[in-house]
Write a protein that binds this DNA or RNA. Sequence first.
DNA 1: GAGTTTGAAACT
DNA 2: CAGTTTCAAACTC
Length: 791
Amino acid sequence: MDVVSPELNSLLPDEIMDTEAIAMEEELPAEHLAAPPQSEPEPPQVPMETEVPEIVSLCPASTSMQMTSTSTDAQCSTSLGTQLLLAPSGLISSTTSTTTTSVKTTSPAVTQNLPKISSVTVPANHQLIINKVSSAPAVDGKCPGAAVLKPEGQKLLVAGLSKTGQPIMLALPHTWNKPATTQGTGDAKAQPTQIKMVTTVGKPMIAVSSASQLMGSSTTLQAQQLKALQISKKPPVSTAGPMITKLIITKALNNKGLSSPASVAPVVTGRVVTQSSPVTPPRTITIGETISTVSQNTSGNSKVAISPLKSPSKLTVVSVASQSPNSPQKSVTLPLNVALGQQILTVQQSATTSPAKAGTSQSTAQTVKPVQTVGGVGTSQFKTIIPLTTPPNVQQIQVPGSRFHYVRLVTATTGSSTAQSSGSTNTNTSIQPAKPVMMNAAVRMSVPIVSAQTVKQVVPKPLTSGAQVVTTSQTPQRLIMPATHLPQIQPNLTNLPPGTVLAPAHGSGNMGYAVLPAPYVTQIPQPTFVTLTSSSTFSTATPIQTQARLSLNGLSTSEATSRPRKPCNCTRSQCLKLYCDCFANGEFCNNCNCVNCFNNLDHESERLKAIKACLDRNPVAFKPKIGKGKEGESDRRHSKGCNCKKSGCLKNYCECYEAKIMCSSICKCMGCKNFEESPERKTLMHLADAAEVRVQQQTAAKTKLSSQISDLLTRTTPAITSGGGKLPYTFVTKEVAEATCDCLLEQAEQAELANQPQAVAERLILEEFGRCLRRIISFAGKAKTDCPINC
DNA sequence: GAGTTTGAAACT
DNA sequence: CAGTTTCAAACTC
């Protein structure tokens, strides 16, 4: 779908990214990483998804990076369909998921810094694009679903079609571009801007208002599951001064309202606070109701696209240095929940390689390097390669059990920054040394994906090399790895561990890579709350974060995640060899019984070396062993085949049998009995099934009987006299006795089915009787406590 | 829980 | 690539 006309596309700056390179490919040649195309062809037409949520993208086309707070620097698109893109630099356009139509925004020459939104296009897939340009090309003519209105007295009224075909109108307030100069010079009286979007039927709405209004608009979200995005960013210290931009977007997950006229439209509320100088008050923009888009000009050196997501959704975070027009940059949209539920969050930042332009805000310290993401949709592979020049400071707050997940990426500013002063508002430049976590000196992006109510505790875990992991302890820790101290690793990019992230080594200048198997990140069934923090200069540290849900060992995601991995017991391998299941699965050891474990963040350098060694020995060492077989064969088969000799491939020694798959032609096993017609295998399977059925029956029976006992005890409670204080045995009514007998008989039957000796059967029955008795006593006591009046 | 068996990984 | 060793999980008692 063409959002803009080809003519307009021709005007697009090179920096505007498209989604072509984001197309999920299972394998991507390494050269793609080194030499990204300078100019991207027309974005491929992506088949629209019927339920693709609306995407709102405020994409300032201005390449001028003047530090005016009103100059929209952040591109933010969000929707209930969970597309949220933030592009601080205004140099990029958003990318969309593979299931959504790619969008390019127009980029007419901008002669002023005022954030004029020239066009808003709303394609049929409900993507709304707002371009901050000084003039509005004839977009409406090319996009039937969009209309551009400029009522008198207002800077812009734009309208599109909602998902249901209802017109969407976005009305910028009259003061839309007024604060441009005032805030840039520290005008404390800068007033918040309001944007309201209404439809003819009152459904999709955008409201940009003050923070206080945000609160009001967010009240409608109370009944809905909210997502919050919080971004705070500090511009390059050398160029922009202490400008801090803070973006908080709260969005509703429920997008059903878009299609249901009668229902309340999902609401997205947000707030942008920008401080361009100590005397400049925060500027707040609240975006609410259905779609929120916030564009905010901060330092212009980072681009963030965040998608708080609903499957299929993606999260794109791309640092965008102010870069020369010839420096192509791409914002890579990564599927956060692709076919296998993979989730990846990538932050790309790199030191500038383009000569800074003095006097312009583009002369920041970083230039975006291409981010290549190779996602194996439908496979278990997901690879992200993030060129970085400096090691990241990573802080992850992980609450695995509660489906709440924080990822905090921090890149501190350093004195070695090459950033140059350019911003007109740069009045106070401070160079700070790199620190592991400097939330107030960096860009922070928080993507709330699940309700914060689920967060129970956050326990910081000290990390080395500037990385910190904070996690609660309920599920195995799978975290990112800071790419520090990494020797120059140039692994086979096609055979990295699932979800591998390649990051430049520290001090390497640019293209050293850290190998970061994706499973280091906790896999959670739902999108997570991600906090990204990075400085504007990126001279010493760069955040890297990858989240991926991967299939493990051929198992589906649900299987892999639902079954807790067993703790390892390694004693001699330091958990740095493939003997260790944790290491082999690309996970950190957590709650394991290993001795002298190096598979943790405290030994990241050793661990990275070990990963490299494994990859040197076997480039596919971290690939799942169970993959798809050849045509005509079973869907799942062992990639290498087993070599069993004595087990007959009918014990868990055999990797095929363990994976519950048949041995295949590539197996080199001897005396294999793990084939379809094998009577031994059938017998084993039958026995296993029978055992499973027995367990299930037993569990069900106990549950049922226990419920019966409870019910009976509850019903007998009123019989207790208030002053009697009857002893528990008085609760053993006829019904209770019968239920207890049922329990005992059931236990006897189970023992008989299991061919247990009589002695064992008797013991089991007695144990069951004891359990019944305890339940009776327990309920008796509870009944006495719960019913003080009757008792 | 200790000891044995097994086969993948690592090594030569 | 083949043979051997190392290793940790699976298994048995």
